[in-house]
Structures are given as C-alpha cells and as structure tokens.
C-alpha cells in the first residue's frame, strides 16, 4: 500500500516521541491523527539536532530530560497504529546506527512503523539502511534541498520510497510567516525526476500556508507549529491539525 494515497495533498504532522513525556506524546500524536493528519512523523529526540531550530531543540531537550529512551519510540509508534494512524520515524542517524540499523528496522516494523525520514543520512552513506529497509519493508524517506543538484535529486529520488521530503527553505526547522518561493521551483525540479509523492516541509504553521503548498505539493509537512501548539494540550494539537487538514483539502494557487 502506498504511504500517501489520499487522492489529494496529504497532511503530515511531526512531534517528538517522549515530548513532553512518553505517555503525553502518545496522547498528542493520537490527537494529531484524530484532527486529520494523514501521516505522523514520530521524532527521535537527539542531543545534537543540527537541522532543528529552537522550538524542536527545546522539545527534544525536554523529552530527554523527562527520561526518553530510544526504545520508547516503538511504543509511541505502536500507539499511533493502535489509534488508526500511520507513522514514520524521523531520526538523526546516530541513535539508529548505535541501536543497530537492522535491529531498529525490525523493531520499528514490528511496532507498525512504515518508514524512516533521515535528515542527516544521504543515500551515498545509506548502504546498510537500504538493505535493512528492504528486509523489513520500510519506506526510505530521504531529503532534497534547494541546493541539491539535478544529479543528486535524481540519485536521491531513485533511492527513496514512500515519498520525497523537499525542504522548502535553506535553513533549520521552525515556523515562518511566508511560504518560501523556493518551494514551487524545487517541487517542479524534483517532479522531473520521479513519480514519487513530494512532501514539502520547513516553515508551515497555518491552514492558509498549507492550502498554498497543497496547490503544488503532494504532502504538506508541519512540525514546529505542532510543538508550539502542544502547549495547549491535545485540544490545541487537534485544532491545528483540523485547520491544516482543511487547508490541504482546499488548495489555493498563488499568483506567482
């Protein structure tokens, strides 16, 4: 079954496992599913998140301070599956490498996880992950960036499955007021190389932005905004998911 097959642009929401606590993250992720996220990214809190801005850094620090252990990610993924949601894991590579790439893949698949997004693993270094993902039937979601060359986009697309993650801006995670104008151009460039769905992330925080992205992207990815709204608990997260879900269902083409 394809990871994303909604016949429209999908909504992908991110929250770290263990944030603010392991049990708390299960409830928040369930609220995201109930609110209308088609897929959730379960983040692995990491000590050195170089691709993340202050919001997600602080959430990861809080999760680690509250006792998050890597094994907890499997029970969080299980909880998402049990709630009827679809989950992939997003993780910096060292925790997975240290756990054992094959063992992590096996345990994630057993928990119902559908793939891994790898922000600091490029296909060039992914031989072990290619083998493990095939063995355990997981999707490999690599990233492309506005700085990627055509050659690298083609190579990355060929190595990917499920969807391709297009980072719409050059920079770290964090909500932004304006959707980057680099996003449509990047999506168009990627489109030329693959039939895989293309998800766009980095900076989205509102239903209006989601609607704008949905006009050209197959999926809209929202992270920091969910972390921020989780201060309002499950209802806050569910409300944001509803607003964004509404956005992806009503794409608005912009003038540009």
């Amino acid at each position: 079954m394809p990871l994303l097959d909604e016949g429209r642009s999908s909504l992908i929401g991110y929250l770290p496992a263990g944030f603010p606590t392991v049990e708390g993250s299960k409830s928040l992720l369930k609220a995201m599913v109930d609110g209308g996220c088609d897929l959730v990214e379960v983040g692995v809190p990491y000590s050195d998140p170089v691709m993340d801005g202050p919001t997600i850094q602080a959430a990861a620090d809080q999760a680690l301070a509250n006792g998050f252990r890597l094994r907890h990610v499997f029970e969080v993924v299980e909880a998402v599956s049990a709630a009827g949601g679809k989950a992939v894991v997003m993780s910096y590579w060292n925790p997975i490498y240290h756990y054992g790439v094959d063992k992590f893949s096996r345990d994630l698949a057993a928990a119902g996880g559908l793939g891994i997004i790898t922000p600091d693993l490029v296909p060039d270094e992914a031989a072990e992950w290619m083998a493990a993902s095939q063995a355990h039937g997981l999707n490999r979601i690599f990233l492309v960036a506005p700085s990627s060359t055509e050659e690298r986009i083609a190579m990355t697309a060929a190595a990917s499955s499920g969807f391709l993650y297009a980072t719409s801006v050059m920079g770290v995670t964090g909500a932004r007021d304006v959707v980057s104008n680099a996003a449509p151009e990047l999506v168009a460039r990627v489109r030329a190389h693959t039939d895989l769905p293309i998800g766009v992330g980095l900076g989205v925080k509102s239903g209006a932005q989601a609607a704008e992205l949905a006009a050209f992207a197959d999926a809209v990815i929202v992270g920091s905004a969910f972390v921020t709204r989780s201060a309002d608990g499950e209802s806050g997260v569910a409300e944001l998911a509803k607003e964004l879900a509404e956005g992806v269902r009503n794409p608005v083409a912009t003038a540009s």
Binding site: D120, V122, E125, V144, S148, R152, M170
Partner: peptide, 14 residues
Amino acid sequence: GGRFLPEALIAAMD
C-alpha cells in the same frame, strides 16, 4: 570519515 550531513550541505561540501 564520510559525510553524515544534511543534503542541503552536500553541494557546498562538493
């Protein structure tokens, strides 16, 4: 060694 870095930086490393 190698390059365990975000794709966004690979072009600059190249």
